[in-house]
Write a protein that binds this DNA or RNA. Structure first.
Length: 922
RNA sequence: GCCAGAGUGGCGGAGUCCGGAAAACGCGUUAGACUCAAAAUCUAAUCCAUAGUUGGUACGCAGGUUCAAAUCCUGCCUCUGGCACCA
């Protein structure tokens, strides 16, 4: 792996000569490329590297094609992860300590240094700084052509000022709103919890479900049930309570409610005033009658063991015709003496579903379920729910809602019930969850939450319009963007904890980490200037004047503002943003929509490209599996050019690629071979070209032509197959046929290097210098394609085909020939070929021009069937070609070759066709 | 559950947009060359049949449209990803 030797050298030279730090230049088109800045909580791995590598290849290719390229980078430190790392280290959480020790050992040799850093990491800023610095080195070691002079991190005050400006713009645009919002909350600690705080939160995600609480009146008080299917309220026959469960009687705001003890706690967390007046067992309420709030019907409270106290309010209403659990519980109760006379005996069907009469009963009977403890009930409930939701229609028992589909009317019914004061909302976690410090996770409702209101219709349609105009690659992701715009609603944009920018309109809040990273590409354009301006001068009107050309600025010279405005106008808009598809449903869509909300149209983003992830030996890389390859190991273990080449050659952007050592080795061998050929060619003398040499050069430029197109379209894999893998195969043939193969390569060596330079820049640079190329390979213009000699290609392919045919026959007959007879086609057949090549549609009409019309017609049909025009433009002088190639053929076949000999024992000569000589082996 | 994407040799995958000789490129396997030997490299073979440039079978399952379907349409099965406070 030679490249490992010269890679660091070139990285240093590039940096010293600042060749990737662009200056404003009006003689070239500009190209501004960004990739989301990395989050600096740990070491990056080869999967992250894939996106940055592909982005770098784009940047480099654009430089070759005459663009003035800006490719900057910065770091993200906002949000809770870095903060919680420091917290956990402070609390001496052993898991976190050992995880971070492993991270640090990637970079540090000495254990003392590791211990010292663990101590330092109790300050979150140190975590962020440390990894940012390491990531810069990692990126440099892969050869990324980044302009580092514009780097920053999202915790810096200057950047915070910029984000504040962004939020002022949102406020002006009226898309910043305030309201209630449910969040996951630690009951005992009284604070929000994130996924990383919850036990197994990363494996089994906890989400928030919205239950509807229905209040059933009983003597001026309420028995409160909870449900996910409020539309079934029309078919209620009774309530279910768990007889052995502990319930409470409590004053809730101004009413008295019965519910489980857990429910009381949850309600309190959700902002209700709850005073428990007494505890009671569920059985104490059995047989009592409550009033159905929608029709005044009096229904009994009955016992059921399936009712869970931790779920909802611990009391549910029973809809036996539609809920399998209810149906079964009722059936189980039939044997009970005590409730015999109050058990409802009709099952009111309120939803008509094709395929069912009484859905719950039908399903339970079909499955042969016998009691309410049967686990199959869970499955059956899902089946019924699905069937009713999609194909169910409410019937005449449902008042004004009769005749409508469940799926369409569900939300309406919910709203109606709420407006009638019959129901209230109860938020519930999707599963029971505890925090790492063993606190119960509940849902709390914040009532002063700030949102960005994406539901704005104009904004949505403007966004969709623009997305349709953008270049998105791979194209298949476009629909995902459009869908995201459709379902985006109000989204909380500030949080109670985490690093980042203080929310400008309420200092208790911090701007949420995805919302602070959507228009920062604009910040790059002026980042260098901002370094000499005092933070307090960076007011909203300062940014107005730089980015929008509107505000009046105090304390910053007009000249400076003008310079910044000029830089911004030069570089903006962002020509391309490259990242992973995982970001579509949030970051990338915000990126687009926020630009639309703040900037005029000429500054809206132009294009987005996306690439999938990397797995290793068939399995996902993850910390827990311990199979992660950190980016920092790449340059030592494989070398950067190999990594880059592997990333490109093993899959298109939208394919998940598999890092397999075996394949890496094979790509390494290819690269080695290429380096070897180029190396040898640097000393080779050029000589006069033979036909086979012409063939190779023509093939090269054909490949280059395709490659140029592939590179332009981001089809890097196809590009590398054409210009490297196929050319290496062709070189093998050249080596066998040509008297001076390396001299031939010498002729195209520089062009070959530049065509590969975006992908293997170090190798390109190294040999560019050896070949005495001008300046840097990284900045050299993309090679031009000369006129291609197609005949030389056709002639050589003809010979290759002849060899193949001879081998074929030899294999079939299992004979190794010592003499090979080749016969070329007769001249009238060559004429038939000409006729076909001139105009294949009219060929048969010219049959009259031949003496033997029947034979000619057969020959023409055969040629058409063979589609000769696809490979050849005109007849070849086959006899000449075969004679020229005779030595090669004899060497290849290890036999004597005779051309158009009179000896023809099997009468093969008559079978010869143009391009397909007849063959006889002896 | 909702939304999206994907199912092609022993394997990774081209080809699907826009229907027109499926399997490019790579891996693996087999044989040979070079080696004391191994690795690497090179040469050849790798769906079946065949003195050849030809015929047959095959692109998740079941249908449909068409002269022609991996490609378009309908239904089904399986897998993967995203789903909002996670960066």
């Amino acid at each position: 792996m030679k490249w490992k030797e010269y890679e660091p050298k070139w990285q240093k030279i590039w940096e010293d000569k600042k060749i990737f730090v662009p200056k404003l230049n009006n003689n070239k088109p500009k190209f501004f490329l960004t990739i989301p800045y990395p989050y600096t909580s740990g070491a990056l791995h080869i999967g992250h590297g894939r996106s940055y590598t592909l982005g770098d290849i784009i940047a480099r290719f654009k430089r070759h094609t005459g663009h003035n390229v800006l490719f900057p980078m910065a770091f993200h430190i906002s949000g809770s992860p870095i903060l919680s790392i420091s917290d956990k280290l402070k609390k001496e959480d052993s898991k976190t300590i050992s995880l971070y020790k492993t991270y640090l050992r990637i970079y540090e040799d000495s254990e003392e240094k590791v211990d010292q850093l663990i101590k330092e990491f109790e300050d979150p800023k140190r975590v962020a700084e440390y990894f940012a610095e390491k990531i810069i080195n990692d990126f440099k070691s892969i050869g990324y052509s980044v302009d580092w002079t514009r780097k920053f991190n999202t915790g810096q005050e200057r950047y915070n000022k910029f984000v504040e400006w962004q939020f002022h713009k949102f406020k002006d645009a009226g898309i910043l709103v305030k309201g209630k919002h449910p969040i996951l909350w630690s009951l005992q600690a009284g604070q929000p919890v994130g996924e990383d705080d919850i036990v197994d939160g990363d494996i089994d995600k906890v989400t928030i479900n919205e239950f509807t609480m229905v209040k059933f009146e009983m003597d001026g008080e309420f028995v409160v049930t909870a449900t996910l299917r409020p539309e079934t309220l029309f078919g209620v026959t009774n309530l279910w309570i768990n007889p052995i469960g502990i319930y409470v009687h409590a004053k809730v705001d101004d009413e008295y409610w019965y519910m489980s003890r857990e429910a009381a706690e949850k309600l309190r967390a959700q902002g209700k005033k709850v005073e428990v007046t007494k505890d009671l067992r569920g059985r104490e309420l059995l047989s009592r009658l409550v009033k159905n709030p929608i029709n005044g019907e009096r229904i009994p409270i009955l016992p059921a063991s399936f009712v869970k106290l931790t779920n909802g309010t611990g009391i549910v209403f029973s809809v036996p015709a539609h809920a399998p659990y209810d149906y079964q519980a009722l059936k189980d109760l039939k044997t009970s003496q005590r409730f015999a006379n109050i058990i409802p005996n009709i099952l009111p069907v309120i939803v008509n579903v094709p395929g069912y009469v009484i859905p719950a009963q039908d399903a339970v009977e079909r499955q042969g379920i016998h009691d309410q403890k049967d686990p199959l009930l869970e499955e059956v409930s899902k089946e019924i729910y699905k069937a009713e939701f999609y194909s169910g229609v409410l019937n005449e028992k449902c008042g004004d809602f009769a005749g409508t589909q469940v799926s369409k009317v569900k939300e309406k019914i919910k709203g109606w019930l709420e407006s009638q004061n019959i129901t209230e909302i109860l938020y519930e976690t999707s599963r029971l969850a505890v925090t790492r410090s063993k606190n119960t996770v509940v849902v709390s409702v914040l009532d002063d939450q700030w949102f960005i209101d994406y539901s704005n219709k104009d904004w949505k349609s403007k966004s969709k319009n623009h997305i349709n105009k953008m270049k998105i690659f791979p194209e298949k992701y476009r629909k995902m963007f459009l869908d995201t715009v459709d379902w985006l609603d109000k989204r909380p944009c500030a949080r109670r904890r985490g690093l980042g920018t203080t929310f400008p309109f309420d200092k208790e809040w911090v701007i949420e980490p995805l919302s602070d990273s959507t228009i920062y590409m604009a910040y790059y354009t002026i980042a260098r200037h901002l370094m000499d301006i005092k933070t307090e001068k960076l007011t909203p009107s300062f940014f107005d004047s730089v980015f929008l050309g509107t505000g009046k600025v105090k304390g910053v010279s007009e000249k400076k503002i003008k310079e910044m405005r000029r830089d911004f106008l030069y570089w903006y808009p962002n020509d391309l943003r490259h990242t992973a598809p995982a970001h579509i449903s949030n970051h990338l869509t915000f990126f687009i929509m926020h630009h639309l909300a703040i900037f005029p149209e000429e500054f809206w983003p132009k294009a987005i490209t996306l690439n999938e992830m990397i797995i290793r030996e068939g399995v996902k890389m993850s910390k827990s599996k311990g199979n992660v390859i950190p980016l920092v190991h790449v340059s030592n273990k494989y070398g950067s050019d190999l990594y880059r080449l592997y990333v490109v050659s093993s899959g298109d952007f939208d394919a998940v690629i598999d890092w397999r050592e075996r394949d890496v080795l094979s790509v390494s061998n290819k690269l080695e071979k290429f380096v070897d050929i180029i190396e040898k060619s640097t000393d080779a003398k050029e000589s006069e070209l033979n036909p086979v040499d012409e063939w190779f050069i023509s093939k090269f430029y054909m490949a280059l032509k395709k490659t140029t197109e592939f590179m332009t379209n981001f089809e890097f894999r196809d590009a590398i197959i054409e210009i490297l893998f196929k050319m290496l195969n062709d070189f093998k043939w050249l080596e066998r046929r040509s008297s001076n193969p390396y001299g031939v390569v010498r002729k195209i060596a520089k062009d070959w290097l530049i065509s590969l330079a975006p992908i293997i820049p170090h190798t390109a640079e190294e040999y560019w210098k050896k070949l005495k190329g001008d300046g840097f390979a990284s900045l050299a213009p993309w090679p031009k394609i000369p006129k291609i000699n197609e005949e030389s290609i056709q002639g050589e392919e003809y010979i290759i085909n002849v060899v193949e045919q001879i081998r074929n026959i030899s294999k079939m007959t299992e004979t190794i020939p010592c003499k090979v007879y080749l016969y070329t086609a007769k001249s009238w057949k060559v004429k038939a070929l000409e006729v076909v090549l001139e105009d294949k549609e009219r060929a048969m009409k010219r049959i009259t021009e031949f003496t033997n019309k029947e034979e000619a017609s057969k020959a023409i049909q055969k040629l058409i069937k063979q589609r000769v025009w696809e490979k050849f433009t005109k007849p070849l002088d086959e006899k000449l070609l075969l004679n020229e190639a005779r030595t090669t053929l004899e060497k290849e076949l290890n036999a004597i070759v005779e051309i158009d000999s009179i000896r023809d024992p099997l009468k093969k000569k008559v079978k010869a066709m143009p391009f397909r000589p007849a063959i006889y082996l002896e």
